[in-house]
Amino acid sequence: MSLSDATLTPPAARGPTPAQWAGGAILLLVLGFAWGAPLLVPADPLRQDLMRGLAGPDAAAPLGYDHLGRSLMARLAAALRLSLSIAGVAVLLAGVLGTGLGVLAAWRGGWVDRALVLLADSVLALPGLLMVLIIGVIISNTPLAFAIGLTLVLWIEFFRLTRATAARLLAAPGVQASRLLGFGPGYVFRRHLWPDLAPMLLTVAAFGAATAIMLIAALGFVSVGIRAPRPELGQMMVELLPYYREAPMALFLPVIAIFLTILALNLLAQGRRP
């Protein structure tokens, strides 16, 4: 029996959930480390000092040294900056592209809608990893190739959700009422679509960023990603794996960094359920 005494149900809660607060806080920490570390302890992530291979922490390298005597803190921060920047650019581009096309498809309907859906479904059929790898061969600048490849992968989810949500909202009486009252498409987007789209887009963006960061690291791990000596999380793990017994902490650092980043993004994605 649904509760027919409707006035007893409180209005829906608004604002971020506790999980989102936690995710946001962890993400800020990660961002703070990535961009703050070089300010606190300036060091070149590429500078080798073989005498210090796998040495413990000191003032110049508070997290110790890797097998080639490079500062782990500097390398970790540089690797995080790279991954987060690529993920950020790709999510932004994919968000604008996917949301725009999604609204267009829902608004215009007809063959525009059908063609865009067919395109999205077809791109979806190509595994994202494959797409990124192929673009990586076509464009020789790896970070740029990753950003473009990831954009081509990530726009689909933005498109699909935006299209479904917008189609539902556009068919609702509220939009018809606003049009009758003389409001234009801009108003309909701002007042009717955006309030429902925004929290959903945040979720898709957070998941998309997590996907991007995992993909970059996975490709680095199997040695077809960002090329050495430029530091990258997955590649750092492969490099440090042989020295696991001598310096376990050196291997754990990139592992913890990626775990915290993905966890933060996943938590951020947990919006309110209707």
Partner: peptide, 18 residues
């Protein structure tokens, strides 16, 4: 705009978030 309509479900006829 002088031809207008009232809806069956009043909450759905207003923008939800403002």
């Amino acid at each position: 705009v002088r031809f207008q309509k009232l809806y069956q479900d009043p909450p759905s006829a207003f923008p939800r978030a403002v």
